[in-house]
Simulated assay, not measured.
Amino acid sequence: MLNHNVFIALLHFPAMDREGRAIITSFTTMDLHDIARPARAYEINTFYIVQPVDAQRAVIKKQIEYWSSEEGLKTNPTRAETVKLVQLAYNLEEVIEDIQNRRGRKPKLVGTDARTYPNTVSYEFLKREIEKRQEDFLILFGTGYGIPPDLMNTFDYILEPIYGAGDWNHLSVRNACAIILDRLFSKNRC
C-alpha cells in the first residue's frame, strides 16, 4: 500500500448543525462506498467511520458484512475489496488510539473545511510532508455543517478549502473526499 502512512476518518460526531451546535449526524449508505472507493484507489491505509450511535453502527456493520460475504463478493468483487479498508469507531479518540497502537506514534491530525483557519496549509505542503513518510497523517472529514471550530483549532493542519470555478464551495463530503485525495495523491496531476 503506497500511502500506508495516511488514514482518513468520516466524523458523524462531533458535527455541527446549521446553528453551529454540536450534533451527531446519521450515516448515509452512499458514504461507505463513495469514500471507500477513492481510499482504495489512492492506497490509503484505513477509512474510519466515527459513529457513536449503536443503531447506526449496526447498519454500517451489516453493510460491511454483506459486501465481505461470499454473496457480496459474487455480486460485486470490487466492493468487497474496498470495504476491507473500513473500520468503525465510537469517537475520534478511538481512531487516534488505534493508529497509535498499530503504528507506534500519534498521527498528525489534518482537518478539512470550506473555511480557512490560522493553521491552513496548501495541498502541495501536505503532499510533501506525506511523501517524506516520516509521520502518519489522519485526514478528517466532517458531516452535517462541518467539524466544530473548537475541535478544528486543535488539529495540526487544516487543508485549504476546495475552490471551484466561482466562489461557491459547499460540496458533499463524498465529493470533497475524492477531490482532496486526488489533489494529494494523483499521479497525473498537471
Rank of each mutant, 00 (worst) to 15 (best):
Y42D: 02
G104H: 06
Y157F: 09
A36E: 02
L73S: 15
N91Y: 10
D54R: 00
P148N: 02
P77D: 14
F125A: 06
R21L: 10
D156K: 03
S69W: 07
D182C: 13
M30A: 04
S186Q: 09
L85G: 04
R57Q: 10
L11I: 07
D31M: 05
S122W: 06
N76K: 15
L11H: 01
Y157S: 01
T116G: 11
K132A: 12
R18D: 14
P149Q: 11
R105A: 11
L184T: 01
H12M: 07
C177N: 09
I35H: 00
Q56G: 03
C177Y: 08
R105T: 07
S68N: 12
S68T: 13
P14H: 02
V86D: 04
V59D: 08
W168M: 14
Y157M: 07
N101Q: 14
R115C: 09
R79K: 15
P14D: 03
D34S: 01
D98C: 13
R18E: 15
F137K: 04
M16H: 11
E93P: 12
L126D: 00
I23T: 09
I24N: 03
N101D: 12
C177W: 04
G146R: 00
L159T: 01
V86M: 10
I162W: 04
A58I: 10
Q63G: 11
N175D: 15
M16K: 09
W67S: 02
N45T: 10
A80N: 13
V95H: 11
V6C: 03
K132G: 08
R102K: 15
G20C: 08
D150K: 14
F7M: 06
G104L: 08
Q100M: 05
A22P: 09
G20E: 07
S186N: 13
R18G: 14
A55H: 12
T29R: 09
K84G: 05
T75I: 13
G142T: 02
R57C: 06
R183H: 05
E160D: 04
Y123V: 06
M1L: 06
D54N: 00
I96V: 12
R115S: 11
T25H: 03
A36H: 00
S26D: 08
K187V: 11
I180E: 07
E131S: 14
R105Y: 04
T112G: 03
K127Y: 05
T28C: 08
Y42Q: 07
P149T: 12
G20L: 07
G20N: 05
S69T: 08
P149Y: 10
P118M: 03
L126I: 06
Q51F: 07
I96W: 04
H4T: 10
P107I: 02
Y163C: 12
S122F: 08
I8Y: 00
Y48L: 13
P77I: 15
N169A: 11
I96R: 07
Q100L: 08
F47P: 01
T78K: 15
N76G: 15
H170V: 13
Y42S: 04
R133D: 12
S68K: 07
W168G: 09
Y123L: 06
I8L: 03
